[in-house]
Design a protein around this nucleic acid. Structure first.
Length: 274
DNA sequence: ACGAAATGTCTAA
DNA sequence: TAGACCTTTCGTT
């Protein structure tokens, strides 16, 4: 259940912990068995991520000739890591494990991904072509490109922030929290929002994702607001509006509202986001 | 035990 | 827009 920050983190970890030596690749559940065989015995020699997509390079050939593992976790997918025991044996798989990487000191188990496939470099490029700028990558022209893409569309900004061809990486939590922090109503049409405010939104998405990348979890709340909340309620300490339906906004006191947008729960403050 | 929800995306109608 | 899909976890009976 990850947004972009978790994906970039995982990508780095997979290369750091499992790269540079021959790996055993298994599919305890069986659904990935044929593909696992294509990879088993090879080394991980590179990794990259964009938005919520992970690409792991297997083999020492140049990029164009290597085999690439493409993973997208979707809503439920998860990587779990377990240490080998004192004899160097991996633990028995727990649950439905689509893919297992057996490393020197630990195993990486993948469950529930929406995509897990061995692909060519061309297929990697095809995926990248469909994705908009990633605030964690933040190439020099990306900020302006994000502004241009949003302003070219008439759909609501709440939908556009979740559209991976407009901006790759943010999900439902960053959508709610960043729109709140920048004070933009999720219902505003992209084409009606000024370049300046969209620039601030990009900056805030980047700041949020960067913070999540460092800490490993999403906490969008500023220090001075943290103290105001009930210390028992961990979720409320992290978020201004996400999952806070019917409770008072910490900034203005209005009730946080909720409705479905594109089949996902959208949270916003009607007072702060006009 | 069972049902709902979860930080997502695709496809068909 | 609705449904399908992949799986785990948490709350309610």
């Amino acid at each position: 259940m990850p947004e972009g920050h978790v994906i970039h983190r995982l990508t780095a970890r997979l290369l750091a912990d499992f790269g540079g030596y021959s790996l055993e690749v298994l599919s305890p559940q069986g659904r990935f068995a044929d593909s696992a065989e294509l990879l088993s015995g090879l080394q991980i020699t590179g990794s990259s991520s964009w938005g919520k997509h992970i690409f792991i390079k297997f083999g020492e050939e140049p990029d164009e000739l290597a085999r690439w593992l493409h993973v997208h976790l979707g809503l439920y997918g998860k990587w779990r890591f377990y240490p080998l025991d004192v004899f160097g044996n991996p633990p028995a798989p727990k649950g439905e494990i689509r893919l297992r990487l057996v490393g020197r000191e630990e195993v990486a188990d993948l469950s529930g991904p929406t995509r897990c496939a061995v692909v060519s470099y061309d297929e990697v490029l095809d995926v990248l072509k469909r994705l908009g700028p990633d605030p964690l990558v933040n190439h020099p022209a990306d900020r302006a490109e994000f502004i241009r893409l949003v302003r070219a569309r008439k759909r609501a900004i709440g939908e556009l922030v979740m559209d991976q061809s407009v901006v790759a990486g943010p999900g439902n939590i960053y959508r709610a929290e960043c729109l709140f922090r920048v004070g933009i109503s999720p219902f505003r049409k992209g084409s009606n929002i000024s370049e300046k405010r969209l620039g601030l939104l990009w900056d805030d998405l980047r700041a949020g994702l960067l913070d999540g990348l460092e800490t490993g979890f999403i906490s969008t709340m500023l220090e001075e607001d943290l103290r105001a909340e009930d210390p028992e309620d961990v979720e409320a300490q992290r978020f201004y509006v996400y999952h806070r339906t019917g409770r008072p906004c910490l900034r203005c006191g209005s009730m946080v509202a909720e409705q479905l947008m594109q089949n996902r729960r959208l949270f916003w403050c009607p007072g702060c986001q006009r």
